[in-house]
Amino acid sequence: MPVNIIRTEKLTFCYDGIEVLQDISFAVQKGDYLGVAGPNGSGKSTLIKNILGILPPREGSISLFGQPLADFRQWDKIGYLPQRLAALNNHFPGTVREIVQLGVGRKENIQNIKQVLQMMDIEHLSSRLIGELSYGEQQRAMLARALYGKPELLILDEPTTALDPQTRDNFYLLTQELNRHQGTTIILITHDTGVLGNYARHLLYLDKKIVFSGTFEDFCTSPDMAGFFGQASQHIICHQHDRSIV
């Protein structure tokens, strides 16, 4: 029987009385690679913040690894890269090494640190202060942080916005490798539907509520989606990752 890593039931969330998420019910199974897409303000990041307990939902329930969110304690199982890296305080005195280990109960594991710094190609920056780095290097340091604890669930909110194409491609290949060979469950939020088509197994399209949930193939062949986006737009989205609609 498939294990649900995340399950939400009738999730609703409001910012100052305005509904941002409406009746969101979905599940992510162990080993899945879920892509989350949607227009700006569609609630993608808010959904993730609800799931991680950063923002409390107004209604509905969330469970992580089979436990209600309120009882969940195994946070080391989750690696999260937030979207909002631009707010990073450039005077923050943490070194890259300190940032990678950031978090509760994260005992120093030199081998792990070395490994994730190598993965992100920032081993030479380990003693530099995070504020002294370029935006792209900061992004890589934050990705290394998300990967450090060898998480079972990796949640990436717009992870490659500041990366050069080479690093971006390498990063997505790494997520694919983690997903396929180590069974890491991945949730990827991005506007890049080409990336979602190439790497994600399932797609969740949000616009305050779930517009579509299923495989990318289903998305590309769905008459409902053709109706929602218009056939031309659906074709463009699906064409971006070399998949043709029927």
């Binding site: 913040k49 307990g53 989750i78 999260y80 707010a87 990073l88 940032i99 950031l102 509760v104």
Partner: peptide, 12 residues
């Protein structure tokens, strides 16, 4: 101190 939201996402 680094990021309060990120800290919350770690269960802190």
């Amino acid at each position: 101190t680094f990021d309060e939201e990120l800290a919350r996402s770690m269960g802190i």
